[in-house]
Each structure stands twice: as C-alpha cells, then as structure tokens.
Design a protein around this nucleic acid. Sequence first.
DNA 1: TCTGGGGTCCTAGGACCC
DNA 2: TCTGGGGTCCTAGGACCC
Length: 447
Amino acid sequence: MMMTAEYVTSLSIRRGTADRKWVALVDVNNFYVSCERAFAPRLIGRPVAVLSNNDGCVIARSDELKALGVEMGTPTYKLNHLVRRYRAVLMSSNYALYADMSRRFNDVLGRFSDEVESYSIDESFVAMPGFFTATLRELGQAIEQSVAKEVHLPVGVGIAPNRTLAKLANRFAKKQPEGQRVCLLEPDSEETVNLLKTTAIGDVWGIGARLSERLQALGIHNAWQLRECSENLIKKRFSVNLQRTQLELRGISCQPATQQAKSRKQLVVSRSFGQASDEMLDVAEAIRSHVNRAAERLRKQKSVAKAMTVFIRTNPFNQDKPQHSDSLVWVFDEPTSDTSEMLHAAQRLLRRIWRKGYYYQKAGVQLMDLTDQSSAQLPLLDQPKLAEQRVRNQRLMDVMDSINQQQGRETLVLGASRKVAAWHTKQTACSPAYTTSWTDLPRVAAR
DNA sequence: TCTGGGGTCCTAGGACCC
DNA sequence: TCTGGGGTCCTAGGACCC
C-alpha cells in the first residue's frame, strides 16, 4: 500500500485518543554503504567497506562484509585478500554525499511527524503521540516504504514508549527481511520480556564496555536482569544515568521523545595526516586549514567561541618511535568567530607546544564555550578604531562564507598556501558528489 | 607501511568564599 | 589554647554515543 501525506494527516486527527506517547527510532542500515549503493547498483550484493579518512580503516560495512568476519576499525591492508577472493569493494568516505542523503532522509520523516530529531547522521527519533498500536505498526511500515522508495535507503523502525526501548526495538527490526523491518514494543508484553532476556547487557543503549563489565560482575548479564534488579543497588553503585536506563526498560519515560536541536557547545576539527611530519610548517598548514573550517562552522551556527585549544600528537600505534602529544588553550579577550583572530592565536599556541624531532601524525583545533552570537558584546564604543576593524573583519568573513558556500569548501581561506601539503588526506576511491555537484550528477543513458 | 572524527554528560577533586 | 564545614565554580578525565 502506498502511503500518502493525506493518509498521515488523517491519522494525526486521531491524536489524543490514546493515552500513551510513543517514539520511533528510524535508523538506516549500514548508512555509508547504503548511500554508495543508492547511486551505484553494481555494489549491491557484494561485500563493501567504506574507509576512514586516509583510507586507514573500516568505518562502515555491508552485510556481506560483516558475514566475512570483518570488524569495524579493521586496518585496510588486512582486506586485500578479500578484494581478490570475494570481489570486495573498498571505498573512500564521501561525507558530502552522506550529509546530503541524511538531509533527504529527514525530509521524508518530517512528513510523518512534526517532531523529528536527527540524532546522528544515520538515525532519527520521531515522536508519535497517541496512536493505537495497530495504527503505529502501519505507520512504521509506511516510513520504511517511503524512505526506500524516495531516497533508496533501507531503514529499520523501532517503536516503543521511550527512547531506550525504541533503540532495542530498532535493533530487532533491522534483523528482519526487507519490507518487514518494523518492531513495536509494549513494555510488559511477552515479546518485550523475551527480547529483554535475549539482549546482552552491553547491547543496551547507554551501557558500554566499562559498565557492562561492572554489571556482569554483579551477575547482571542481560537487559531483563537490569530491569528487574534493585533500584537502590543501581542508584548506590552506579549513576543516575544507569538508573534512568533501568526505568526506561520498565517502560517509564525519563527523557522526552525528541529534543530541540541545540546549538553545539563545542566544535572540533581534526585530521590524521596522510603522512606524519616533523616539519612545523606542515603542521601549521594543517592547523590553519582546521581553523578556517572550524570558524566557518561556528559562524554557520551563529555562535562565538570564548576559547580555543590546539592539539598535536604523534602516532600512538608506533610504539617504537618517540611519542609526544600536547595541547594548549587560548582564551580570547572577547568571544569571537573571526578567523584571523583565531589563526593568530593558533599560531602562537602551536609554537609553544611544538617539539623538534617528533613525527606528528594528527593535529586539531577545538572551539569551546560557544555562545550565541547575539549575546556577544557590542563593539567597543570607547575604542572606535578597534570597533571599526571588527566590523570590517566581520564583512570579510561574510563574503568568504558566501563564496565558499557557492564555489565549494576552501575556495577561499585565510592564511593558507594552496599547494598540496604533506598533511592532506589520502583518498584513493571516493565516489562522485552525486547530489551536491552539477558535474558529478549521475548520468542516465538515453535511448 | 597501515588503526576515524566527531560529539555529550557526569563525577571527582581542587580552589575559593563565607 | 586553637585549625569547620558547606556551597559554588572550574577543570580534567572517564564513560558513553554515532
């Protein structure tokens, strides 16, 4: 059945007829790989890996690659035999494509609910207040079908009264065959109890390796045991976070179904180098580029930063080589989003943390204590020259941002040479920018 | 040879104040 | 002679998420 916008509207009229709020977690399967496949059908059915920056390791895997036993983070060189033997395909990551596909995915979800929270690039929470469970299942199916039809991405839909249970429902849904990837969990149903009993404690949202270890030492090995154990024990021995998780497993909501997108509180831009370097100029070049990028993102969200950290480090995996890592914070006189001011500070910081004789492999900048631009202080009335300079810089930033937006990232940057520097990342097999560049539009053969 | 790049929240402990 | 204790703010680091 094809669901239309009218259908969704007619359902929403029945809001308020049921008393329980529901939330759906819609998650794209193997997101990066699925994005690549949406434009390159030859990849379907084959083992596919998408690689990190520098093509260093695996950050996304198709089901076929998972079946061959390849884990996340596997270094690329270990996959060569799979390429030969199973015709596995290794792709460089294409973040411009993934970001654009993510936006389209959320556009589709937006037609099903007024409240959609993009939780990460590949998954969103969708508030679904007041439906009957039968209707909710249909709505879940409509979401799966619409995303498949319109953006060619496979999704799983997990529906439950709160986010923790919706996460669990989603894990289960994703394992089902295409077209049936919807799972609805009612807190006390037999289905839910069974699912909780077969869910390892470490697979519960919010429980990572450390907590998992500590819980298992107390004899808590699965989600059901956590749900049923003493609330006091959790409160005393662990944190309020875990207590919240426990309550949600019982069906009690401890957080809203969706949250307003808040502007970021910090912003990091960092990269590993294509090749480690002991030249300060190389590293300075990388940092200049990162500052430009970070400041641009800061201005895009209309924020200013109170402080900035610059950090550098050698390759921690090269244990036989001398190691050094350091970072230093710069506090601005006043919160700023001015690239030139940040470049100036970054340069000084780098000189202070730089040590000769080490091969640096990664560098980055972090902007901290971000606040709204409008809350920043007005230009200094008692220092007209400084005030004038600020206004001029602000205009320059505006022009730079709009040119970069039209002509592509880093068309215009401050203080960086345009030569290809040693730190530039390696990308050997990147797909075209199918959706964000006219020249890379996919071609369709004419008959 | 070769191992990502972002984020958030919580807690413990020190500094400081009264 | 005698040497508190509570509150707040800040920071570093841990743990988690994708």
